[in-house]
């Protein structure tokens, strides 16, 4: 039993940054923008969150800073793709390279300025963000450890996923957004402000990705600054959007599954089978590739990518 509790807890820890990235990317894609810059936005959030935590020692400020940094990256992307109609693939990739570069650059800049060999967050902030045991509930066996003694990032991530789900499914604005994603010209004709909606959703989506980045640098790396702390998670998140078939609720399950894959290597008993670590590390990517192929074979109309995703909307081009 302990084994499963530990595995699930570890899967949650590993899956949470994916959840943020996936939900952020869902908002982007619902607006018709296949944003390949998730990795970059997460990296920017990772750096900003860490810096804010380092200098203010305040967990909330750190999360807000991460959100703003991710949103800033997304704003550049939105300006280029929404207003300037630049190619979405290339813009997204550039955002990734730029975001990673910026994050690593400032990380090293901080390191050299601090004069020490490593940067460590104040212990209060890591403790604050690491785990909150909800009194009474966390004492329940099994469920208590899994559900009620997690990092605040976990609760916030699930909350955001649920909110985005409600927003997309049950609000007028969410309906408008889905219309834009499927057919921006029709949305425009209905009098929806396509440009404004795209900007808002892309930027908020980017902010959510940023928080996921902060999780990587603050929790995942144990409060010590490391370059490339996001380490490909942003790319998995882009693929997870397909796995979750554009539903923020399924993204919760999906990120848990992928989190489990990435920690599996520590939990397979070594005396039963020995599989090299590299094969385990490959698993999430291999499975994502499989998911891509399977979903392209199935081609379900219901849970498909928003139709306008990848192409920019230009009113005068109709």
């Amino acid at each position: 039993m302990d084994f499963w509790v530990n595995l699930i807890s570890a899967a949650i820890l590993a899956g949470i940054p994916l959840l943020y990235g996936t939900v952020g990317e869902i908002l982007n894609e619902k607006a018709g923008h296949l944003n390949l810059g998730v990795e970059g936005m997460m990296a920017m959030g990772a750096c900003a969150g860490f810096m804010a935590g380092f200098y203010t020692n305040n967990a909330i400020v750190a999360i807000i800073a991460a959100f703003l940094a991710g949103a800033l990256g997304a704003a550049i992307y939105a300006l280029l793709t929404v207003t300037f109609k630049a190619d979405q693939n290339v813009t997204g990739l550039t955002l990734t390279i730029f975001g990673l570069g910026l994050s690593n650059f400032f990380g090293e800049y901080m390191l050299t300025n601090s004069g020490s060999s490593s940067l460590k967050l104040p212990t209060e902030i890591t403790a604050e963000l690491n785990s909150v045991s909800i009194p009474v509930l966390s004492d329940i066996p099994v469920v208590g450890k899994i559900l009620f003694s997690q990092s605040p990032f976990v609760y916030l991530g699930v909350l955001i996923a649920v909110l985005v789900f409600i927003y997309l499914r049950h609000t007028k604005m969410g309906l408008n957004l889905r219309t834009i994603g499927e057919n921006p010209a029709a949305a425009d004709a209905l009098g929806i402000n396509v440009t404004a909606m795209k900007y808002i959703n892309v930027i908020i989506g980017g902010g959510i990705c940023g928080i996921g980045g902060a999780y990587c640098s603050i929790i995942y790396c144990g409060g010590v600054w490391m370059a490339n702390s996001v380490n490909g998670l942003g790319w998995i998140a882009v693929a997870l959007v397909i796995f979750a078939s554009w539903s923020p609720l399924r993204a919760i399950g999906g990120s848990l599954v992928f989190g489990a894959f990435s920690v599996l290597k520590y939990y397979v008993p070594k005396d039963v089978i020995t599989i090299p670590n590299a094969i385990f590390d490959m698993l999430p990517f291999l499975i994502t590739a499989l998911v891509l192929v399977i979903s392209s074979i199935r081609q379900s109309k219901e849970n498909a990518q928003p139709a306008s995703c990848g192409t920019n909307y230009f009113r005068e081009d109709r």
């Binding site: 730029f98 990673l100 570069g101 910026l102 690593n104 650059f105």
Partner: peptide, 13 residues
């Protein structure tokens, strides 16, 4: 003392 990641940033810009 500027990190060589500077070139990534410039390339992006």
């Amino acid at each position: 003392g500027l990190s060589s990641y500077c070139s990534d940033v410039l390339q992006g810009i």
